[in-house]
Structure formats: structure tokens, C-alpha cells
Design a protein around this nucleic acid. Structure first.
Lengths: 191, 191
DNA sequence: AACAGTTTTTTAAACGGCCATTCAAGTTTC
DNA sequence: GAAACTTGAATGGCCGTTTAAAAAACTGTT
């Protein structure tokens, strides 16, 4: 019981520290010692919990993917029309606890490094396919078949592009603003 | 005369090798020795020409930015209407000699690492501002003022998003296809 | 053409430093 | 007292850069 607890607490602490440290120093450059210092622990204890640096990175991404998946499920629960569900997909990506500079930053580093790590690229593919199928399902209800794919690409690439920009931002982000802008883009694509 | 020649030839060879090597191994992981092997040279000679690894990376990005800038100028020369110029901006980004997996890949790594290198982030800001002002100039001629900014964000983020996806592709890209899709997105945003 | 002198280019080897991981020896928790 | 947790120090390896010396390219002269 409490054995599991400690492990879970440490896991979360270390993952949060990883997000901050990767944001500060960059995925390819950050060291175990830096992450450990951020967490107030030692590099050795990270290996005790995650086995290796790559294991830690994978766990961190799983953590973020889970957050995104949950945010999307919640939005879907209350949305009633296809258009509302499109909004919900966008809102999930720009949720208050996801759309922050450190998290966009690490997401982007994740994207950049996915092609070089089978474990990361697997996560990347799965997530991408899920978002894609959500978009397609709603768009098919709103548009004639031959326009669905163009609209899907426009929206999905827009989402990626916003995150990419957000990762470069030097000031805090405004998630509410981002959601409003995303809604406008949806309306632009689905008149 | 011929002194300059050799230097220029080596520069270009080494930069091409850098693009390939970074694509193969990843920006943060690639070593000088790997780049050198790709170019058929030694790591020491890269330092002779570029001073340091960071110098090489900056030169490589300057090379790519130059290519992009030239492609855009050419397109602008023949475009006559605002809409054609919007197409031209898109076409430049998806030009045959720019829209390849290795180049999208290195571009994306560049984005991811820009925040951690003043030299890279400077290049990044300049390029982004240029694309932005091109978009704004044309959109202002086509849309009422209050819709310009939304459209600009939609288009610019779309472009970034497509590159981001392209960098993950396991097969060769189809630039013509990408240009056609981009035109459709422009038409979607500017009816 | 040939050559000696000068400059440019190349690289092997050495240097110094840093990092992920392991391990053994502690400390805490149950 | 056992099991879970923590860490300082050791390990082994790798990498960017420098250096010194050789090779190649060029120059002007005979």
C-alpha cells in the first residue's frame, strides 16, 4: 500500500522536475545531475526509479500524453454536436494545465527526438493517430467528403504550429486566448 | 581567386554533410566525427573552417534560410495578385529543393534548439518576422481588418505544422502535392 | 619547365572535461 | 530485522577542441 505510494510520489516529482529541467536546458543537453538538482534528489535515485535516462524521458512523455488524453475525454463528455466536439479537441490541446511554455517546449523536443528513439516514436504515432481520427469523425459530419481531408490537415497542422510557436515564447502563455483563436480557426474552416 | 574557391567548395560540402548527418542522428546527438565521416573529411578540418560545432550549425542554418529567402523572392517576382503572392509564399516553403525529409528534419531540430542558442534564436526570429510580414501584407489586401490576424495565424501555423509532420515522414515527400494542399488551405481561409 | 619558398589545407594524436550508469555502503520505513 | 530507498564515489567512455607537423597548392624566378 504505502510502498506503492512512495514510488508514485517520487515518480511524479521526478517527472515534474524533468519537464522543468528539459525546458530550461534542452532535451539533448540536459544532464541527469541537473534534473536531480531540480527535484532535490540525486542522479542515482533517478536510475533507481526509471532505470535509465531514456526510461525517464519515456515516462515523462507518457505522463503528458495521459494528461492530454484525459483532457480530451472530459471535453467529449459534455460536447453534444460535431462542431462542439471539434472545439473540445482544440480546447484539450490548449487546456490551462497543458498549454504552458515548459510543456510546449518539452513536447516540441519530444517531436524532434522521436525519430531517433523507437520508444518515443511509438508514442508519437499513437497520439497522432488518435487526434487524427477524432478530427476525421467530426469533420465527416460537417463537410462533403472531398473537403474533409483538406480541413483535417488544416486544423491538425494548425494545432501543431501553435505549439511550436508557443515553445519559443519568452512570456507566459494565455490558454484562454489560444482556445478562442482556435475556435475562430475552426469557424474559418467550417463556415 | 582560387583561394576563395576552395574555401567555398569545402564550406558547401561540409554543410551538405551536416544536413545529412543531423537528419540521420539528431542535432543534439550528432558528433563532429560523424559529420566529418559523412563529408569524407576529419573533425579537425571542420573546426579549421567553421571554428566550432556551433559555428557549423549556424552556417548550416544560414544556408537553409538563404535558400528559403531566394525561393520566396523568385516567387514574388512573377506573382501579380495578392492571392498569387500568398500562393508564392506557400510554394517557396514547399519548393522541390527545400521540402525534403532531411531538410524539414534539420529545420525542426533548429526550432527545438533555437531557445538555447542566442545565435540560432536570432536567425529564428528574423526569419519568422519576415514570413509574418509577407502574410500580413497580402492578407490585408484580401480580408477585412478584424479577420486578418486569425487568417495569418491559421496559415503560418499550418506551414509550420506541415514541416513538423514532414520531418517525421519515413518515405520521400511529394512537394507538388504539398503545394496543392497548401493552395487548398489558402482557398479555405480566403474564400 | 623546374624549383625553392611561402601559404593554405589536412589530419593524427593528445588534452581536458563531462556524463550516464553502477556499486557499495549507508539511512529510513515498515 | 528485513525491505525499500538514497547517495557519494568510482567507472568507463565519449566528445569537442587544440596542437604540431605533414601534405598540397600556389607563387614568382630562373
Amino acid at each position: 500500500m504505502s510502498r506503492k505510494r512512495i514510488r508514485d510520489i517520487r515518480n511524479e516529482e521526478l517527472i515534474e522536475a524533468t519537464i522543468v529541467a528539459v525546458h530550461k536546458r534542452g532535451y539533448g543537453v540536459v544532464t541527469m545531475a541537473e534534473i536531480a538538482r531540480e527535484a532535490g534528489a540525486s542522479a542515482a535515485s533517478i536510475n533507481y526509479y526509471f532505470g535509465s535516462k531514456e526510461g525517464l524521458m519515456e515516462a515523462t512523455m507518457l505522463h503528458l500524453l495521459g494528461k492530454l488524453r484525459r483532457a480530451m475525454s472530459e471535453g467529449y463528455a459534455t460536447a453534444r454536436t460535431p462542431r462542439e466536439r471539434l472545439y473540445a479537441v482544440m480546447d484539450a490541446n490548449f487546456a490551462d494545465d497543458l498549454f504552458t511554455v515548459p510543456q510546449c517546449s518539452i513536447w516540441m523536443q519530444f517531436w524532434a527526438n522521436a525519430p531517433y528513439s523507437p520508444r518515443l516514436s511509438r508514442l508519437h504515432r499513437i497520439n497522432r493517430a488518435r487526434v487524427r481520427s477524432h478530427f476525421l469523425a467530426e469533420l465527416r459530419a460537417l463537410l462533403p467528403a472531398q473537403r474533409v481531408e483538406t480541413a483535417r490537415q488544416a486544423l491538425q497542422c494548425y494545432m501543431d504550429g501553435v505549439w511550436l510557436q508557443a515553445a519559443q515564447s519568452e512570456e507566459a502563455l494565455d490558454p484562454e486566448d489560444a482556445r478562442a483563436a482556435a475556435h475562430r480557426v475552426v469557424d474559418l474552416v467550417i463556415p
